[in-house]
Structure formats: structure tokens, C-alpha cells
Design a protein around this nucleic acid. Structure first.
Length: 425
RNA sequence: GUGGGUAUAGUUCAAUGGUGGAACGCCGGUCUGUGGCACCGGAUGGUGUGGGUUCGAGUCCCACUACCCACCCCA
């Protein structure tokens, strides 16, 4: 049997109803904040990610699906392509390529789509997974660098959590500084780590060399006291970064958006500057990060574009759905009516009635005249239909149909002309 | 990439080394124009793949693969 490949999966009904529910709420809420949809290609030139996301990150160094696309003609070039492991780089590439900054306006863009990383699958982690993301990017004259943009994105996210009805999340907030002050912090951290490294876990000893910031993320209990005593990023932020972060927090306080500053929260992508954040949820097991994001004031230049500060986030849609399922969110709509032909030659009459009801905007499904009425009722029950509409010879002759409420068992005869209105009400 | 666990019917699970079962689901009937209940009957796998041990292997051993969980990392 041919099966879905490792780390990929089929999303089947009734689960897809929940996915659709989430995506519908996303579009509604994001539209209220004046975001518009962007769709970028699923694969891009490998260079976009190595330059944008960062050569040293785990994503680029070992998790990308990359292949050499061979030249098929003398005029073609061989090029290295990669299935996108995230979508921010693609959006910024499109921003640069289409010179969106020339409008002078802030670009408020969102996307929904599959991303690909070659990791070992586990709960909430798949090789093809879905992200819902948004980016606010533009020239500084459009206000792209302002703390209120950061706050607005977070405000929008809490609105989305409310709209989908998700409870039990926590928003962690931090600032990782900028090109100027982060290197100074990194240096201080390395120096501090040099003294205590031997007392830390083996992972941390490795991280102290390769990526000191990651040490802050360590969860080994014995390491915690030592890590808490390390220098804090907040103490190293320069004046601009410090006031920026303070203003983000002040706006969130005014809006009543609940958050926790977590000076130890670090993010794995190189492009983040200043504000970073993460929403976690307790139902997600080890992959507790349900969404993450932050500011990336230098990304555009990093990949050859103009200065275009921005802030964005990505929601792990798979994880959001998992969290909603854990709290038993039901999204499937019941089928309003099941049309049941009864007796030889009634299929066509049932089809005609179904067509009329569907044109009137009512979702219906149709049984078959060869079914005994009992079987039609059983099928209606299994489909979760609200009403059963019998189309037998008597009904066809009278042009009025027996309609039964499947929950109460109540049954009445309704004329063809009134049927759609009755089912809709 | 590393570690642990698991792999038997559509699903959830049974089966002291001795002819593979149950429940639910599915199909039909009791019941030819009125479902949910009940009863009766039926179909469905040869045990993830490949080797080995044995008179005999879901059952023991080895390898591989897949899935789950965790590490790592991230959404």
C-alpha cells in the first residue's frame, strides 16, 4: 500500500471542519485589522533562506528539503531550490521584488499555507505543517518601526484567540535587542558562561560555544540557578531598544493584553530584532509553542532590499487545532436536510427538489429510491441531518412533502413553495 | 540525528509456543411509506516487512520499516 510519507498526513472530515473554522476566523479577525492576504510560492531559491533565516540556524543547516533543479536547455541554469521552511523570508522577498515600499504605505499582509522542515515527527511536529502568519512591513516613514505595530499584532492575536474560543494560553514577551546591542550582550554572555560552563549539562556546554543565547532556553532543573545568575539581555539593551520595548509594554497594558516578560525567551531564527514573543499552550506536550514571532528590522537589507523594518508572527495551525481539539471545540455544522426518494421513479423528483433547496442556499444530501425508508432514515441519522424530507409518489402528486424533525420526531407536510423557508428557519 | 515504546479486522483491543477472537462499526433480515432500541444472520484480517530458532511462531531472536512519545529544535 502506498502511504503518506513520513511526517505528512491527510486531514480528513470531520477534522477539516475545525481547520476551516480556524481559517475563517483568521480571515475575519485579520480583515478587521486591515490585513490582506498574500500567497507566495511553496518553493524558493535556497539562497533566500540561507541569507534570510540564517546559515547557522538549525532550520537552514539541517532541516530543509533542498534539491538541485537541473537545467533542461542550454538557456537554463541549474539552481538550488528549497521547499519553504517558513514564510517570512518569502513575504519579504515579494515585498522587495514588487517594490511594495514605493506605495509609501505600511504593508499588512497575512498568509495561510504549508511549510516544510525535515525534522523527526512527534506530537505537534510534522514535516509538512501549516502556518498562519502575518507581517507588517514598510518604509520607516510609514511608521513600520513603531512600538504600536508590535502591540497591534499582539492585540490582534489575542482577538483571534477569543474568536476561536481558545483558553489556557500564555503570551511571553522579550526584547532581543538590535545589531548594535545584541553582540555586546552575546559577548558578555560568553564571558559569563566561560566561568560556569563546567557545571552545566552537556547540551548547554555545547550551546555555550555554538549559540550562547540558547543556553537561556535550557530546561534541565539543575542548571536553572546558574542560568538565572547569568547577565540579562535587558541590562544590555541600548537606549533605543529599551524605550521601544517599554513602549510596547505600555501599550499592551493600556489595551489590557495580558503578557509575561520572559528575559530568557530566545528565538531560533537569526533575523529577529527587538521584540520577540511566543504564545504557549499547556495541551501541546513538548511542542508547547503554539505561535511565535517578533520584529525583523534588518531582514530586508539582509536579502538585498531597501530598509524596511517589520514585525510578524507565525501560528502553528496544526498546534492551534490540537489545542482546540483538546478543549473539545466542535466546528462541524449539521446537515440541514436529507432528501429521501421513496419508490421507483422518485429519484428524479428528489434530485429536482434538492436542486431547488440548494439554489435557495440550503445544504442537502439525497438518498436513493432503492433504499427502504428505514435505511434512508438510518443514513439521515448517521449524516447528522436535522430534517428528513420524504419524496414518495403521494408527495410528488400533492407537490407537498413530509418533513420530519429527526431529533423531536415531529412530522408535518409542507408545500414545495414553503419548504426552503421552513428548512432555513 | 539520539533514546524509549508500539505494530493483530475499518476502529479499539484480546489470544500459557499448539487450528487467530471480542466489542464497536459495516451489510442484510425480523420491519415492502417512518430512524435511534432489540433480536437473528453475514462479510472482513492470516498478525508491518524480511530472515532465524522450533515438530510447530502474533507469541522467542535478529534486521529493516512505519507510527507514537521524548531529546534536540521550532510553529
Amino acid at each position: 500500500m502506498i502511504k503518506a510519507v513520513r511526517g505528512t498526513r491527510d486531514l480528513l472530515p470531520p477534522d477539516t471542519a475545525l481547520w476551516n473554522f480556524v481559517e475563517r476566523k483568521v480571515r475575519e479577525v485579520f480583515a478587521r485589522y486591515n490585513y490582506q492576504e498574500i500567497r507566495t510560492p511553496v518553493f524558493e531559491s535556497t539562497e533566500l533562506f540561507s541569507r534570510g533565516v540564517g546559515e547557522e540556524t538549525d532550520i537552514v543547516s539541517k532541516e530543509m528539503f533542498t534539491w538541485e533543479d537541473k537545467a533542461r536547455a542550454a538557456s537554463e541554469k541549474t539552481q538550488s531550490l528549497t521547499l519553504r521552511p517558513e514564510n517570512t523570508a518569502g513575504v519579504v522577498r515579494a515585498y522587495i521584488e514588487h517594490e511594495l515600499g514605493r506605495s509609501g504605505l505600511l504593508q499588512k499582509l497575512y498568509y495561510i499555507g504549508p511549510q516544510f522542515r525535515r525534522e523527526r515527527p512527534q506530537k505537534g511536529r510534522y514535516r509538512q505543517f501549516f502556518q498562519i502568519g502575518a507581517e507588517v512591513i514598510g518604509p520607516q516613514t510609514a511608521g513600520s518601526e513603531l512600538p504600536m505595530r508590535d502591540a497591534e499584532a499582539l492585540d490582534m492575536l489575542t482577538s483571534l484567540m477569543d474568536a476561536v474560543g481558545l483558553k489556557g494560553w500564555t503570551l511571553y514577551l522579550n526584547s532581543v535587542g538590535c545589531q548594535e546591542c545584541r553582540p555586546r550582550y552575546n559577548q558578555a554572555l560568553r564571558e559569563a558562561l566561560a566561568g560556569v560552563k563546567d557545571k552545566l549539562c552537556s547540551d548547554c556546554q555545547r550551546r555555550a560555544e555554538t549559540n550562547p543565547l540558547r543556553v537561556l532556553d535550557c530546561k534541565v532543573p539543575e542548571d536553572q540557578d546558574i542560568i538565572n545568575a547569568l547577565p540579562k539581555i535587558a541590562e544590555y539593551l541600548d537606549e533605543g531598544c529599551r524605550t521601544h520595548f517599554a513602549e510596547v509594554c505600555a501599550i499592551l497594558d493600556t489595551l489590557g493584553v495580558p503578557y509575561q516578560v520572559n528575559p530568557r525567551m530566545v528565538r531560533g531564527l537569526d533575523y529577529y530584532t527587538r521584540t520577540t514573543f511566543e504564545f504557549t499552550h499547556g495541551e501541546l506536550g513538548a511542542q508547547s509553542a503554539m505561535l511565535g514571532g517578533g520584529r525583523y528590522d534588518g531582514l530586508s537589507e539582509q536579502i538585498g532590499g531597501p530598509k524596511a523594518p517589520g514585525i510578524g508572527f507565525a501560528i502553528g495551525e496544526d498546534r492551534l487545532v490540537l489545542a482546540l481539539q483538546a478543549q473539545q471545540t466542535e466546528a462541524a455544522e449539521p446537515l440541514p436536510a436529507f432528501v429521501m426518494p421513496l419508490g421507483k421513479g422518485t429519484n428524479r423528483h428528489a434530485m429536482k427538489l434538492a436542486r431547488e433547496l440548494r439554489s435557495a442556499g440550503i445544504a442537502v444530501d439525497v438518498s436513493d429510491e432503492s433504499f427502504r425508508l428505514k435505511k434512508s432514515f438510518e443514513t439521515a441519522e448517521k449524516l447528522g441531518a436535522k430534517y428528513a424530507v420524504i419524496v414518495g409518489e403521494n408527495e410528488v402528486a400533492a407537490d407537498a412533502f413530509n418533513v420530519k424533525d429527526l431529533k423531536s420526531g415531529e412530522q408535518k407536510t409542507i408545500a414545495r413553495a414553503e419548504l426552503a423557508a421552513f428548512l432555513a428557519g
